[in-house]
Design a binder for these strands. Structure first.
Lengths: 205, 205
DNA sequence: AAATATTTTAAACGAATGTTTAAAAACTAT
DNA sequence: ATAGTTTTTAAACATTCGTTTAAAATATTT
């Protein structure tokens, strides 16, 4: 029986993740991955059968990274305002760690919707259900503006992730270094918190 | 002297635009383009020299489409609130017409920053300068919240464009048809108008 | 130490890639 | 109609693609 947990496999996967994030599935060659991993080109198929299987595996990992971080916040028994702030803070942390993540996921789903959507669908339901319920309840008490989760989440994620999707462009156009860009994104994150909470809780400042 | 304005050239360019928007530069083959245009594969290089030159030409067109529509609104001598609403309405119109546009532009700039950024830089300056000035002036009068254009535009464009970048995903996950999706996006657009104006003009409802 | 299993390698595979060629077809002008 | 120009075509080009092979190297077990 094969017991696959060698370090070569890990190295290839990490290298492939990095290359896929940068160049996408179509723009990445098997030799790109092998070079980035510093390994022989045949090893990719030895461990992962094909470029596509390796990609799907990595896509699943990255999608889980993207969704799980938000999911475990939605499950916490905390108030709506705290929860929304926590979502934004967590998403900000994730974007800082992996700025290409959202553009990668969106591009690949756009490219191969049929194959990659099933992965997404479980997360989507789990993510929206809890928050939608909380929103409906609080809206029925009149404490917040009536707003569906299908509008709230794009507001939050869109206005925050947008600046990370265009990170390279933004940095080069404005001549920023990493520290300056982080300063900018943190300010923006705080604006987004105010932007969204002000809208959702109309009475408060 | 060659006078190139035949209909074959137009057909190839239109087909290439459609294919590039859907599959990106790396994911598109010369034969994809020829097939979509219903033309012989050699004609692409006959008219456009290479796949890359054709792509750059199309990228420039699509970038202009994206930027010009907003630019001509920023130049109008209207109040800040009307201008912001006009930007959102115009961006909404554009997204409805070409939902893949933003994801395409972002992905390609992410892929080949060096080559494609110079195209972007002219627009960026023209877009931000006018609005930044208007924001500074009104903020100095205390009529609006102090907010840089580098935060305002991502708020607007991010929260609005986000739902179009993930259009296919959203439609399939929620089982929507085109009409239902348009209904959703129009509601969202109106939310974005309120979201942003409420934040920028704190005193008003 | 010998035998077996696993990992790594260099080389090659056929298929697909962007591009070019040279001749045929269609069009324009004389 | 004829000559010259432009457009279109089928075929092939060299290169790169993902993948496979079979042997060498390494590790594991007996």
């Amino acid at each position: 029986m094969k017991c696959i947990n060698s370090s070569s496999e890990e190295k290839i996967k990490e290298a492939a993740k990095s290359v896929f994030l940068k160049k996408g599935f179509a723009g990445t060659t098997a030799r790109d991955i092998a070079d980035a991993a510093g390994m022989n080109i045949a090893l990719t198929n030895y461990y992962f059968r094909s470029k596509e299987r390796l990609f799907v595996e990595i896509f699943q990992d990255l999608l889980a990274l993207y969704c799980t971080s938000t999911l475990h916040i939605l499950d916490q028994p905390i108030g709506l305002r705290e929860k929304i702030i926590a979502i934004i803070e967590e998403d900000y942390r994730l974007m800082k760690q992996e700025p290409s993540l959202v553009l990668f996921i969106m591009t690949e789903i756009h490219r191969d919707c049929e194959k990659l959507l099933p992965e997404m669908s479980r997360y989507k339901e789990a993510m929206t259900k809890k928050l939608a319920e909380q929103l409906r309840e609080e809206a029925s008490h009149g404490t917040i503006r009536a707003l569906g989760v299908e509008h709230l989440l794009p507001m939050i994620l869109g206005s925050l992730q947008f600046i990370f999707m265009s990170k390279n462009m933004h940095m080069k156009l404005h001549g920023l270094n990493e520290a300056q860009f982080e300063e900018y994104t943190e300010k923006h994150k705080n604006h987004v918190i105010e932007l969204v909470t002000n809208y959702l809780f109309p009475s408060s400042s």
